[in-house]
Design a protein around this nucleic acid. Sequence first.
DNA 1: CAAATTTGTCTATTGTTATAGACAACCAAA
DNA 2: TTTGGTTGTCTATAACAATAGACAAATTTG
Lengths: 245, 245
Amino acid sequence: MTGAVLERKSGVALWRQIADLIRSDIATGVAGQDGRLPPEMELAKRYSVNRHTVRSAIAALEQEGVLRSEQGRGTFVRRRKRLSYPIAKRTRFSAGLGNQAGSTLTRLLESMEESASQTVADNLGVPAGDPVIRLDTVSEADGLPVSRATSWFDASRFAGIDEAFGEHASITKALSACGVTDYVRKSTTIEARHASADDIRLLRLSAGAIVLVTRAVNTDSDGNPIQYAESRFAADRVELKIESD
Amino acid sequence: MTGAVLERKSGVALWRQIADLIRSDIATGVAGQDGRLPPEMELAKRYSVNRHTVRSAIAALEQEGVLRSEQGRGTFVRRRKRLSYPIAKRTRFSAGLGNQAGSTLTRLLESMEESASQTVADNLGVPAGDPVIRLDTVSEADGLPVSRATSWFDASRFAGIDEAFGEHASITKALSACGVTDYVRKSTTIEARHASADDIRLLRLSAGAIVLVTRAVNTDSDGNPIQYAESRFAADRVELKIESD
DNA sequence: CAAATTTGTCTATTGTTATAGACAACCAAA
DNA sequence: TTTGGTTGTCTATAACAATAGACAAATTTG
């Protein structure tokens, strides 16, 4: 809102920096409260750039589906607030976002059996090289991708979980079909990085976007690890909320 | 590691994308395990770009202190792994990083009394406009900035906490001097965004870097809010780790 | 309807980014 | 000391990013 200072010759084009600022201001409610963006000339003045540079930023956000421009009328906001994804002992995708989004959906991209890498083995508590089942999924809220995840399960205990997921389209239900009626989250690490080419494709992001990466271990009620998952959230569309108990 | 696909005309210069990839690969241990980077020609081949483009990326990382090039010998890694910052009920900066870093330090940038914004008021449980004390701090580990934070306290209850912080250089000790012997974290939200100009300056980042933004409320043992804090972590240097209990 | 406001399109110029090739400077090892 | 591998510097050219100005096209307001 203030005379935000943009970085020149930083390797990040001004139009992209401005697009990121506007997207963020919309997500936090700083801008677009009335449903419309200020005129291009005003934005150009605010950021001390040429009107054409602002137009490039708006064009990018229009491509993303955040804005919509109409000749003679103005530029309008199409999507507003960020979703808040809760991380707690009992974290489940649809339940957590249920009250914020109209519809939620988790799609299976791929499932396969592979041998456990060192990281996966450590987190699942099995020897490295043991067979594990990997599920690649994408979760959407209101038709827009919110996160993608890769989950690993011990193949000896969870044989057939891929098919169970195919039937129920839900990790919770698939686990239930495998005899796990309850599970809790043991630990989560969070980092942030620029989206990879895969992230951009699968989450329908723009280049230069940011993803929040979480790595989590879920355990059954006896404390045995049952699932290790690496998730990537579109940082524009979601924030993570940790509730202590 | 693989033939990572770079995005052209994305508003993010190729040299910056490559710098981000290399930095990330070093942080995760994918690259530079032997302490040195592959030759420039090899990297140029891997990313399918000109050698000069790779050189720009390396120059940026050299400026950041991540790499060091020596003519005739090669390019070497100066900093390796990311710190892991724990978020739990009892989160304290120096205690959490103590075992990972040699020295930790929190410096006071500014302190002032102001009237509570709506957000601050909501989180501290005081009426909007009430006087609050704001502390702006930067925390360092081994001489490198890790995070910056803005904290707010109810001025009526914590008068003089700015001076107490000046004496002890620790939030925990300053609170203790104000009669709060224990406090717990009630909630934390996490988001990720590109670093602002201020972030870049105070955390000594490069343009286009990512920050993890956390907003947390700490309460005393009776459950009364005592501190609301907005922190920004350099995503290259730290990950957040949430332990369920 | 006329005027004011706003987005859309076009031309032109300058600075930054990326590519290409050549060679110098330096280091380590044969 | 010679050779091969590596980083450092220079020149030149093409593609992209940013600035500047002008005017068209569409909408709203008076």
